[in-house]
Design a protein around this nucleic acid. Sequence first.
DNA 1: GTGGTCTAGACCACA
DNA 2: GTGGTCTAGACCACA
Lengths: 120, 120, 120, 120
Amino acid sequence: MWFSIDFHSHTPVYKQIKNKIKEKILNNELKKEMFIPSIRVLAKELGVNLNTVARAYRELENENVIKSIRGSGYIVIGINEKDFINNKIEEFKKAVVSCKSANIKKEDLFEIIEDLFGGE
Amino acid sequence: MWFSIDFHSHTPVYKQIKNKIKEKILNNELKKEMFIPSIRVLAKELGVNLNTVARAYRELENENVIKSIRGSGYIVIGINEKDFINNKIEEFKKAVVSCKSANIKKEDLFEIIEDLFGGE
Amino acid sequence: MWFSIDFHSHTPVYKQIKNKIKEKILNNELKKEMFIPSIRVLAKELGVNLNTVARAYRELENENVIKSIRGSGYIVIGINEKDFINNKIEEFKKAVVSCKSANIKKEDLFEIIEDLFGGE
Amino acid sequence: MWFSIDFHSHTPVYKQIKNKIKEKILNNELKKEMFIPSIRVLAKELGVNLNTVARAYRELENENVIKSIRGSGYIVIGINEKDFINNKIEEFKKAVVSCKSANIKKEDLFEIIEDLFGGE
DNA sequence: GTGGTCTAGACCACA
DNA sequence: GTGGTCTAGACCACA
């Protein structure tokens, strides 16, 4: 399975799909010019409706991240790394602020990061 | 203003309300036995519907965080600090993992935390 | 304490009050011509608002169960035993039907009744 | 009609709905994995607002009795039979005590039960 | 004024 | 069509 959807998350499924694909591009799992899975294939794999994947792809196309090739599928164009990373950073900041207002100490957060980045 | 709602967030308004109140209890802004704003008052202050606040309060009551006093309002009971903090930690972990898969370096995350906890 | 109120019941408080008084009349705890507690006294005793007791008494007066004596209080007139008992029976039937649809056996119900009427 | 609501009861409609569904599960009218009527369908059938059914279903989900399947509906998980039956028994006891304090004889209660369980 | 429940109706995400 | 959330507004019981 390529990646999975958190159906209990408040983040809409189509946004989760967009996000995962952007991550894969950033990580070079998906390189420029590569084909991504067809709408039907991905929908089946994720257990999700066609329209949901279609919407994700449509928006990714509008953002110039992927491009549809008539009759063949979608290929990767590339992403605006800065924007994408800035979004992640913003989300991260929210999480930090939220922890701070719950009186969690920064040392604890440091430790968690070390753990998750572990072995590096 | 007691706190504010992010109407663009995917997190439902009633959940944001539940969260903010739990934070205030954790931070001792709201102490045991204290009255919290009435449903109507908070709804007006937040620019939110009465039912939305009512739902938040009802769920907080089911979780034994607050208690309704007939005809008077709601008073604070207390929160399960561990559960609440664990939830925050889980959210934080997700944000970290998400940053990691976007190739953000842990040093950058450390810096952000230092900034946000700044002056301490 | 004369009797008590179940504040978590869905039955309105004023109806609980009416009921309890009728029961006491039926059981001869309250006999004809006797004074019942004043509105203020009962309200205080039950931890309930004046208006609530007042409403109960007002309705009991309309049903000719009690009668207000100017400046003195309320005295018992009597109750229509049949109506009152029929109401109880109806409630009991509902409880039985409800148990039946939960697959509880009649023998269990018999046993519970024996227990509650115990020592007789 | 699947079941009906007593609009004159003091028991809130959403609680009546929760109860009826639990009963149906207990009686195997609703078996595990089966779909229950959609919120909209049940609301229409009962002549009740959508939100009322939604609340009942939401609470049943929190109690792990049913589970929502994205875009498809709700399926039955199961109920804690003991808790449910104990609740019924408690209600029954209240009804018995209430009859007792109205001087109704236990023999009368026995007869009523026999009648209602009749033909068995 | 305070909580509790309900309605009618709307809009979103998803199938 | 299905669930999820929210609004505006109403009425009840209670203080």
